[in-house]
Amino acid sequence: MMSKHSMMILKGIKKGVPIMIGFIPISTAFAVIALQTGLSPLETVLMSVMLLAGASQLMAVNMLAIGAGNIEIIAATFIINIRHLIMSTYVMNKLKDVSKPLKLILAFGVTDETFAMLSVEEPENCNSYFFAGMAAVTYGAWVLGTMLGILLNTFIPASICSSMSIALYAMFIGLIMPSVQKNHKVLYIIGISIVLNIVLGMFLTSSWAVVLSTLLGGIIGSKIVRREKQDERSNADCTNDFGDVRSNLHS
């Protein structure tokens, strides 16, 4: 009989599998592109081990290819990854039971994908063991995919690998759909954020546009949901301010 904790880790590992399927082709593509840019295999793996950040790793090798300076690349990495501040705030808020040193380790595992998975997870699964299992699988897939890319470098064209980036988008769509089916108002939040992102993208770099539109979309979205909640309150069957969203997210 397994302990409750190892059951949770196992559950997290299971939920990490779809992320793994999305991560392996992308990290493989990253490795192929990095080697073509002139990075050594060791530097390529080191980047995946130390960063676990797909967008900034791909951006870094692209910038290296066009001769950008190292400081510029570090600055661009920071800007791209500011969005994790919002995501990590969300994740850390859900992992309340955890000691600070452990939190600092788990924080490394916050990616767009682990954040997305946790955000649609049922509350009883939102604990450190679950998140650790999920993060470990995704981290392993990211590093192994990078090594795979180094091994397969001569056999697979980068274009095939990169076409598999649809995997992550398909995963994001698959995560949203159950909530949309239960509450169509979720579509407004998604739509408003996308429009904000496109409009802001005309004036700002795309990474700042992502940060601001996520934040603004979240603020406006919380108002849309609250208004609906108040409508429902007249029916006198609500539990708390956000019970509505929560039940949609988690059921």
Binding site: R83, I86, M87, T89, Y90, N93, D112, F115, A116, S119, V120, S162, S163, S165, I166, Y169, F172, I173, L175, I176, S179, V186, I189, I190, G191, I192, S193, I194, L196, N197, I198, G201, V210, S213, T214, L215, L216, G217, G218, I219, I220, G221, S222, I224, V225, R226, D241, F242, V245, R246, L249
Partner: peptide
Amino acid sequence: ISPKIEGILYAIPYAALGVLIFPGILSVD
């Protein structure tokens, strides 16, 4: 965390996922 912030934190996954999907999905090819 105030209830207001909590409400925003609940709406943020939808906002973030929407922004992550589009227009990025156009660049698959």
